[in-house]
Design a binder for these strands. Structure first.
Length: 113
DNA sequence: ATTCTGACGTGGG
DNA sequence: CCCCACGCCAGAA
C-alpha cells in the first residue's frame, strides 16, 4: 500500500539508501557515483533528494555522501553546525573548509564494491 | 493544474 | 576564472 513507504527495490530512493548504507566507514561517496551506479548519471539531483528523505531511514550515513567536488553540500541540512564535518573527521576523513581533502583516496565507488 | 526550487553533474560560452 | 542552460524526478507553494 502506498500509505507508507512502499518503495522496495523498485524505488529509486531505496536503491540509493542501500548503496549509501554500504559505504564503509572512513570513506565517502558522491551523488553522481551513486546515480551512475543506478543507471541514472543525469539524476544525481534525485540522489540528493532521496537523501533528504533518508532521515527516515536507519543506517543511512548521509554525512558520507558528498558532491563531486568533495564539498559537504548537505552540511546545512544537518542538525547543529559543522556536525557533518565532525562526523567525517571522526572517521579519519580529512576535511578542510567544508571540503574533503583526500577525497580521491577515500572515494568509495559502489561499482568497485 | 502550474511554477519553482532543490544535499548534482555535465557541457557550453 | 565566471556565468548560464539542460536533464532528471519529487515535493512544496
Amino acid at each position: 500500500m502506498a500509505t507508507d513507504i512502499e518503495m522496495g527495490q523498485d524505488g529509486f530512493f531505496m536503491q540509493v539508501y542501500q548503496v549509501v548504507r554500504q559505504i564503509p566507514e572512513g570513506r565517502v561517496c558522491t551523488y553522481g557515483a551513486i546515480a551512475k551506479y543506478l543507471g541514472a548519471p543525469q539524476s544525481a539531483r534525485m540522489v540528493g533528494w532521496a537523501m533528504n528523505a533518508s532521515h527516515q531511514m536507519p543506517d543511512v550515513p548521509a554525512h558520507r555522501v558528498v558532491n563531486r567536488q568533495g564539498l559537504l553540500t548537505g552540511q546545512h541540512h544537518f542538525p547543529g553546525h559543522g556536525l557533518m564535518q565532525k562526523m567525517l573527521e571522526a572517521e579519519g576523513i580529512r576535511v578542510c573548509d567544508n571540503k574533503v581533502q583526500n577525497m580521491a583516496e577515500i572515494m568509495w565507488d559502489p561499482q568497485s564494491a
